[in-house]
């Protein structure tokens, strides 16, 4: 297991970056089809708006999240949602982490 880091070779690179893992983890709390307001996500993750935007764009490119701009009355709102694909990737990622943990525990 030590020759090549199994974390790098086996885990989804899109959400392996810590910041994006945090974004996807937080969004995974939402129910399917629920969308979260951008400022709330930003506040909960304690990231700057610019930083969060950059990571959301990468997640969007991978089709893991869907970002929609809409209007709440007259104020523009940005809403973020985890796609089916994103949720699947997150579930696979956590399953892979658990699988990596198990053999170590047995040692």
């Amino acid at each position: 297991m030590s020759e090549s880091d199994p974390l790098v070779t086996e885990l989804d690179p899109v959400i392996h970056a810590q910041a994006r893992l945090r974004v996807v983890s937080a969004l995974s709390v939402l129910r399917d089809d629920d969308r979260l307001a951008f400022p709330q996500l930003q506040q909960s993750l304690n990231m700057t708006a610019g930083n969060l935007s950059v990571h959301l764009r990468k997640l969007e490119d991978a089709k893991y999240v869907e970002v929609t701009k809409t209007h709440h009355g007259r104020t523009p709102t940005t809403l973020v949602r985890l796609t089916r694909r994103g949720r699947l990737a997150f579930d696979d990622y956590t399953a892979a982490l658990r699988a990596l943990l198990k053999p170590q525990e047995g040692q």
Partner: peptide, 15 residues
């Protein structure tokens, strides 16, 4: 992996 899982749980609980 253990730290990652802890991070995931932390963020889920926080939101």
């Amino acid at each position: 992996p253990a730290e990652s899982l802890a991070l995931i749980e932390r963020e889920r609980a926080k939101l």
